[in-house]
């Protein structure tokens, strides 16, 4: 058990390092896209360590407790995440629903802490974040339902193994409509434009993060990196066939994150009700059609 927990912590740490580097590289890519130099690839590390080294403020015990609970929840979620078919901390317990719902503990902690700061913008940001969550989760969960029903398991390693068996396609090909919904939901999950309404720096002063500075903000940055790692890996494992070794995982991970980031950088920002309307129109419809086709008719490419 101790070994498993250590492996889990290792995965969480790896995820943090991976996403922080790739996030930095992506900032450089976006810089080039905008005809700029862009920052150093390790800029995100510098930012995080700088924040941790500063002396911030505290608005009372719930403000601190919420941050600890949030980061704890996210680290716990990352510890369950398989990297490849073999590298997984807790074999057969990497249930899909854990990632969706244990992630919510982290989000709840962050929301609690943000509201506890007493700033109305933080509450508005939390409201928007939760509303966005209501928008993207339902189509995503319907596609996940289809995948679990088709692959006959909700364990992520089993879903990876199912896609890697000869004769089975990756789910993004096997369920093309579902794959499209998956990409859109992933963008919502990552809070990329056009779905980054809940951050909106110029409008509600970066939303939930408005009151954070110093180590609390640093911990929220770590939280953000790890949760991006969880969400992108989830997409890789569900739709892109997972990975049989760590290099394939890295390639797929990098591709997914970069593509999503590039799409997001040529978009504007939706209003919050537009986000909800958008997700409950096409993605939900496509997800339901995909589920009908795959489950009732059995048409899986």
């Amino acid at each position: 058990m101790i070994v498993n927990i250590l492996v889990g912590i290792g995965i969480a740490l790896f995820g943090f390092a991976l996403q922080t580097s790739i996030g930095g590289i992506n900032r450089k890519i976006v810089g080039r896209l905008q005809k700029r130099h862009g920052p150093r690839w390790y800029q995100e590390f510098i930012d995080i360590f700088k924040l941790l080294s500063k002396r911030g403020i505290s608005h009372g015990w719930i403000y601190d407790f919420g941050v600890i609970m949030a980061l704890g929840g996210i680290i716990a979620t990352a510890m369950f995440m398989p990297l490849t078919v073999d590298i997984v901390a807790f074999k057969q317990f990497d249930n899909f629903f854990i990632f969706v719902y244990l992630l919510a503990v982290g989000m709840l902690g962050m929301a609690m802490s943000a509201s506890g700061s007493g700033n109305p913008w933080a509450s508005i940001g939390v409201m928007r974040a939760l509303t966005t969550m209501l928008a993207y989760e339902v189509p995503f969960l319907i596609v996940a339902l289809t995948i679990i029903n088709v692959s006959d398991s909700s364990s992520l390693t089993a879903i990876q193994a199912f896609q890697q068996t000869a004769g089975n396609n990756w789910f993004i090909i096997a369920l093309p409509l579902g794959g499209l919904v998956g990409v859109l939901s992933l963008m919502g999950m990552l809070g990329k434009k056009p779905f980054e309404t809940y951050i909106a720096p110029a409008e509600i002063a970066s939303g939930p993060m408005v009151e954070y500075g110093g180590k609390q903000l640093g911990m929220l940055f770590i939280l953000h990196e790890i949760s991006v790692f969880i969400e992108v890996s989830l997409f890789v494992h569900l739709f892109l066939g997972g990975a049989s070794n760590i290099f394939i995982f890295l390639i797929k991970y990098f591709t997914v994150y970069t593509v999503v980031n590039l799409i997001s950088n040529v978009n504007g920002r939706f209003k919050i009700d537009q986000v909800v309307k958008f997700f409950y129109k096409w993605p939900l419809l496509l997800a339901i059609i995909q589920a009908f086709i795959a489950i009732y008719l059995g048409w899986v490419i």
Binding site: R27, H37, R40, Q43, P201, S206, G213
Partner: peptide, 11 residues
């Protein structure tokens, strides 16, 4: 940004 600088929303 190449110097690691950027605008922020709040003090």
């Amino acid at each position: 940004e190449r110097l690691g600088m950027g605008p922020m929303a709040t003090p």
